[in-house]
Design a protein around this nucleic acid. Structure first.
Lengths: 196, 196
DNA sequence: GTAATTTATTAAACTACTTTAACGTTTCGC
DNA sequence: GCGAAACGTTAAAGTAGTTTAATAAATTAC
């Protein structure tokens, strides 16, 4: 198997912290490449989430499934994003969410123990993951506020404005699941919008 | 004005990190006490959030208000909780949320600059606030998942199970706003539940 | 390349939740 | 302690979003 290009993850990290060449090399040495074919699982509800995962290529989703089989997507993981079941990863307890690949995907993974080593050797990474967490927290708070305040139509318009890449990438069914509506209703919204 | 009892905040901190007496004393020396009468504002949308706030007594709420005046509560701040507009506090940019007191409230506040000093002098506090943030992140993700999956009735039942104290403390109107439904509909849910 | 599966669209009937309005009760401000 | 305001309840009519089902179109599996 050929090694994938690490440029993307270094660029991702450099948005928050600066690394010299040795640090870059050490960081990369802790990462495992993983190929995930479409529809295969990275994590199933009930398993322990053992890695943080950076998406080099492809797209994942994290979701729950209720009694009647309906899926509810809490986050997407497109290229250049980090994804995991954070609660499970941090506590090493069973995961709430299932994570699978919406298309053939390549990941870079770091295990919990290697992440601890990384924190020890390059404390800047504490800062990096804290900033990641802060941004995620703020984005989530925003989403909660929108769910409380907006109709599905407004939420959809905001989604395509905020994540234009994702709108192209994932099916309407997945977007509907993320927005908390049925695919049928999303289709009705789109028809109404296109009539203008 | 009499100084309030700092026991509560020390207990709160000790849930995550251990402090010796000197550290305790230094930490307390950075805190400002603030009394907030019922209905007065701690922060208004558009202002800069300049402090993290620990609730010694009373209860706050953080919310947005839409065009027609409807309020949407993103979080409560009862006794023993931390509350702020985190995005605004971290970036020192205008706040999205308004925070006000649901009843007469006593806070302990720490300013951004004093918090930086605290991190410098007692790095354990970096860990403390990171853990706070992690817990808040997980709770929020949970709430998003529930908003996607559950009916208002189930969300209400979960709310009173998860926050029995809050159910007693705040009015139904506030709970409805937090759940994303109207007070009228919450009343209907309660009637239905009480008929069993 | 083709059959099988999944996805998107539309319509019609249905349900969860909202809106308005009226009324009694509690709480608040002073 | 009293008058005004806010809150909670109920009912009835309205709307946003769901469900089911049928059909066409796109994608997938082999």
């Amino acid at each position: 198997m050929q090694l994938p290009d690490p440029t993307l993850i270094l660029k991702n990290v450099s948005r928050h912290i600066q690394l010299n060449l040795n640090e870059q090399e050490y960081f990369l040495s802790l990462l495992q490449t993983r190929e995930l074919p479409r529809k295969s699982y990275l994590l199933r509800q009930g398993e322990i989430c053992r890695s943080e995962n950076f998406v080099l290529k492809g797209c994942l989703r994290a979701y729950t499934t209720d009694e009647d089989g309906t899926e509810h997507i809490v986050m997407f993981g497109p290229q250049d994003w980090w994804i995991s079941d954070l609660a499970s990863f941090l506590s090493q307890r069973p995961a709430t969410y299932t994570i699978d690949a919406l298309e053939d995907t390549t990941l870079l993974q770091i295990s919990k123990t290697d992440l601890e080593k990384l924190y020890g050797k390059i404390p800047k990474f504490e800062r990096f993951f804290r900033l990641l967490l802060q941004n995620a927290f703020v984005a989530q708070q925003d989403r909660i506020q929108q769910n409380l305040s907006f109709t599905a139509e407004l939420r959809y318009l905001d989604f395509i404005k905020k994540y234009p890449r994702l709108e192209q990438l994932v099916s309407q069914k997945q977007i509907a699941s993320y927005l908390g509506i049925t695919p049928v209703f999303l289709s009705m919204i789109r028809r109404k919008l296109s009539r203008r």
